[in-house]
Amino acid sequence: MSEVRLAAEPRTEFGKGAARRTRRAGKIPAVLYGHGSDPKHLALPALEFARVVREHGHNAVLTLDLGDGNSELALTKTVTTHPIKNYIEHVDLLLVQRGEQVTVDVPVVVTGEPAPATLLTQELTVVSLQAEALHIPEQVEVSVAGVAAGTQIHASELVLPRGVTLATDAEALVVNIVPAPTAAQLEAEGTTTVEAGEPAEATAEA
C-alpha cells in the first residue's frame, strides 16, 4: 500500500456544533493519537480524504502535512460514515513510524468458481493481519476455482505477502464448499413444509 500525502489543519473547537461547522467547510474532523502522545485534533480535506479511502481502502497510510514543515505518519484506524447520507463524519488516525508493525483488518476476496453442483459459503469477510505500516495489503485473495464439495479453507491456508503474518485464529473457517441440493431434495423439502403446515390449518378450522 502506497503512502499518501494529505494536508491537515489543527482544530481548536470541539463538540457537535463545531464538527458540523468543520464539515460545512469541506473538511472532516479527525483525531491523531498513539505512541503515548497527547491526541491531536485535526481537520482533513473531505474530498481528498474520501478519494484516498476509495483508492487505498480503510487502512490507508497518510503523511500528514501539519504546517511549518512538520509532518506525521498515520494509519487510518476508524472511518465513521453517516448511516443514511453516507458522508464521512469522523476519522481516527493512529500515529505510526516507518518499519513499525501494526495489526489491521483486511478484506478477504474469493475468486474463481468452485466445481459444478456445489454451494460456497464465505464465513469470514475480513482477517486480522500483522504487517509493516507501509506494506499493508489492500486485500487477501483466496481462489476456489474448481474446488470440490467438502472442501474447507481455513485462515492458516491463506496465501499472505512476504512479511505479513496472520493475527486471526489460524483454525478460523474462511470458506466452506458443500454439495448443492438436488432438485429432488428441494422438492422433498417443499413437500415437507406443506405437510407440516396442514395440522395448523386443521387446528385453526376446529
Rank of each mutant, 00 (worst) to 15 (best):
Thr81Trp: 03
Ser37Asn: 15
His35Phe: 05
His56Val: 03
Arg21Lys: 15
Gly17Ile: 08
His35Gln: 12
Gln101Cys: 11
Pro29Ala: 05
Leu73Ala: 06
Thr81Asp: 09
Arg54Cys: 07
Leu62Met: 06
Pro107Cys: 13
Ala18Val: 06
Asn70Leu: 13
Arg23Ile: 01
Leu32Thr: 05
Leu95Glu: 11
Lys85Cys: 06
Lys27Arg: 15
Val96Met: 03
Gly57Ala: 08
His58Tyr: 14
Lys40Trp: 10
His41Ala: 11
Leu62Ser: 01
Asp68His: 15
Gly26Ile: 05
Leu66Ala: 07
Leu95Gln: 13
Val31Tyr: 03
Lys16Phe: 03
Lys40Ile: 12
Lys77Ile: 08
Arg51Phe: 05
Lys40Val: 12
Lys27His: 09
Lys85Asp: 13
Ser71Pro: 02
Val91Thr: 11
Glu72Gln: 13
His56Ser: 12
Asp38Gly: 09
Thr22Asn: 09
Ala18Cys: 11
Gly26Tyr: 05
Val104Ile: 12
Asp68Gln: 15
Val102His: 02
Thr103Asn: 14
Asp105Met: 14
Val31Glu: 07
His58Phe: 12
Leu47Trp: 14
His41Gln: 13
Ala19Glu: 06
Val106Met: 05
Pro107Ser: 12
Ser37His: 15
Asn86Tyr: 11
Pro83Tyr: 02
Leu75Asn: 00
Ala30Thr: 04
Thr81Val: 14
His82Cys: 06
Glu100Trp: 01
Lys77Trp: 09
Val61Thr: 10
Gly36Ala: 08
Asp38Met: 09
Ser71Gln: 09
His82Val: 04
His41Ile: 08
Ala50Cys: 14
Ala50Val: 12
Asp38Pro: 08
Pro39Asn: 10
Pro29Asn: 12
Tyr87Arg: 13
Ile88Thr: 12
Thr103Arg: 15
Tyr33Gly: 07
Ala60Gly: 04
Pro39Leu: 08
Ile88Pro: 00
His58Met: 13
Gly17Thr: 13
Ala43Asp: 03
Asn86Ser: 15
Ser37Leu: 14
Leu73Ile: 10
Asn59Cys: 08
Ala74Asn: 04
Leu93Phe: 04
Val31Met: 08
Pro83Ala: 05
Gly67Ala: 10
His35Ala: 07
Ala60Asp: 01
Pro39Lys: 10
Pro29Ile: 00
Ser37Pro: 07
Leu94Lys: 08
His56Asp: 09
